[in-house]
Design a protein around this nucleic acid. Sequence first.
DNA 1: TTTATTTACTCAATTAACTTGAGTTAAGTA
DNA 2: TACTTAACTCAAGTTAATTGAGTAAATAAA
Lengths: 399, 399
Amino acid sequence: MATKGTTGIIGGNALRNRDHNQKVVLDYVRANEPAGRAEIARSCGLSIQAVSNITADLEQQKLLMPDGHRTEGKRGKPALQYRFNPEGAFAIGVELRPDAVVTTALNLSGKKIYNARVPLDDARPTPAIKAVGDEVRKAIEASGFDPKSLLGVGVVMPGPFGDTAISRAGDAVLPDWEEVEPQSAFEQEIGYPVLIENDATAAAVSERVAGVASDLDDFCFVYFGSGIGLGVVTKGHVLRGAFGNAGEIGHIVTQIDGHQCPCGNRGCLETYASRIAARNYLQPFGIDPQSGADFADLVDQRNPHFLAWIDQAAKHLSPVIGTLENLFDPQSIILGGAMPDAVIDALIARLDLPKGSVANRDERACPRVMRGFSGRLTAALGAGAMVIHQTITPNKHSY
Amino acid sequence: MATKGTTGIIGGNALRNRDHNQKVVLDYVRANEPAGRAEIARSCGLSIQAVSNITADLEQQKLLMPDGHRTEGKRGKPALQYRFNPEGAFAIGVELRPDAVVTTALNLSGKKIYNARVPLDDARPTPAIKAVGDEVRKAIEASGFDPKSLLGVGVVMPGPFGDTAISRAGDAVLPDWEEVEPQSAFEQEIGYPVLIENDATAAAVSERVAGVASDLDDFCFVYFGSGIGLGVVTKGHVLRGAFGNAGEIGHIVTQIDGHQCPCGNRGCLETYASRIAARNYLQPFGIDPQSGADFADLVDQRNPHFLAWIDQAAKHLSPVIGTLENLFDPQSIILGGAMPDAVIDALIARLDLPKGSVANRDERACPRVMRGFSGRLTAALGAGAMVIHQTITPNKHSY
DNA sequence: TTTATTTACTCAATTAACTTGAGTTAAGTA
DNA sequence: TACTTAACTCAAGTTAATTGAGTAAATAAA
């Protein structure tokens, strides 16, 4: 028989249905805790009895916990309120960079409970995977959690994912990883489920699990790494595209016949508004910021050259944000990543958002652009958040 | 109790699960017909017995039909092949324009079985809804189908959907519709389930139901109407955004300080590459194409002014297509809509797609850009296809 | 030609998980 | 104090899946 195409969508049965319903309940409680069972039942389209069984299950799994009776002054028997049990499970997030391994642990509420950073001498697969494994084992030990309650390990690493003109032009690629299938390689080393994700998507999920997007289902995250990336969440789900390369915002052309970009285009956003672009811009003036703190200092000192760069970056970023608004129609766009808050804030302040945008409307629940709940650990925290997100979020839109 | 947010994701039970599984089976058969039950079971993650029950159900509903035994020269008992039953059900698609109502009927395979176009004198709600109702009733009558097998009616109409700067600047708005909730208004008039959609999204779905995208799960459709729109399908699902306005491609700025656009921006794509843009461009040369046929004639005659416009449109469209590729990472991008095939083909031939794109890779299953299975009826056919799509496509990604 | 194997399927029994309906408990209200 | 409302619990009933045993129809091997 010829191989026929499959969409990956499969049928349901009682067990898979229970799995789905558990996630539906968890996702509701996540966004609305504390919540009673009757309330959950109404919101999730289930009977009270079903919700009772499910919460009992989740309580046994230590994912939910009861938290007293509340009534808010209403009639009737006060509902037993359920909450996430932050101590019930945890996740580990790793950022693998060419020069370092950053490791974090998060409790079920997405709160950071551990972080560490070690330099990496050799980023080729064998030593790097070993180093990540060692760091994960240290994190499990240091977390103080029962290792059995580890939900999984998320790993953020630079591409290449697939063979495209852009991934070949990547600036922070790991050496000799072309032939390695990272997920299974890490799972073999670590012995827990592993998720691989790019930095921007992980950061976006992080904002939803425990950041400014906790009650947003549609948003974009513009990630300032060494380049510039985009993570998109629509209807609570990550957008990955057909080949996992969705969100390549860095090579949108913002200036016809602009700067030459290694990708082959001219005038890519990344050549104007990214960490690398900033360093290239400042170099002629003898300024060479290395760390995030250096960039923050430049803002604090109101360095005129850096402020000029911010103006330039904002000029190129503004129409791209308009494009994102018009294409994805998100509730908001979040800026963050490996840049200090002060830089992101300055950039946001300089944005000149286009008037011709579907986001330009009178009643808005949140601003068109927000700064993320970021910090230097964004990528590693996001990696851990991916794991939590996966255990919590149902993969169905609606019946 | 304060109103708590709901994602619209609800839990499952046996009945909803059956519904989902029916769609999973239908979607598999759609993409792989003819197919035997054992094959369906393997691909859909269900037991043979379950698939047997489901196909029996679907056969009774006249959505599937058996089509002989095939074995393709393999061992074992030949499987009874199932196919869509094109005569088992039908859908009606309507395009409501300020000046006309276009009505189509499609069988379950998405094939056009009826179409009609009547002028519309008065596009205000009351007369327009009445006119649509009359046309739908005519279509039911003329289709020759049992009215009970009508799955629903899709209606494509210009906005406004929500109150944004762009929808206010729309060029083809219907008068006095601000206060009307179109879906329930049409349902009341027609007595069947009604779906409202925009032209570009409907066209995209049409390509998936019975066009060049029938085996694509991730693609974009660039729709040339009076303006220019975008429909996006990811993982087989329509992307709508938080407020239903996703895909507003027309107001992406392609030229800094370019043409003034009614939306408030300068240099919007729509001011260069749209039907209106073409007419504005040609007017100074005394050329005034009215119909699609007029545009086709201009291509046939190799009219130098029109060819120059196509060059201009292609120049502005090319980077936007690169942007779509980088943001959505689709399998392909389809061009179509209310422009004759000859114009679309000429435009595609002139495109200069950016090298710096995740779509620029060596092994591709289909071209980066294709022409849609279009024709003048695209919008109305797409409206009907929405209905078929909805009855066929499961709304779950995967378990 | 006969036998074995493979594959597709049917029938009957079992099972998981949700719903329904009949109480029970605990609060506010008249 | 009695009534109402709301949140539950318990037991029975329902749906639609799975599982296991058996049958039918084809090719492949002996």
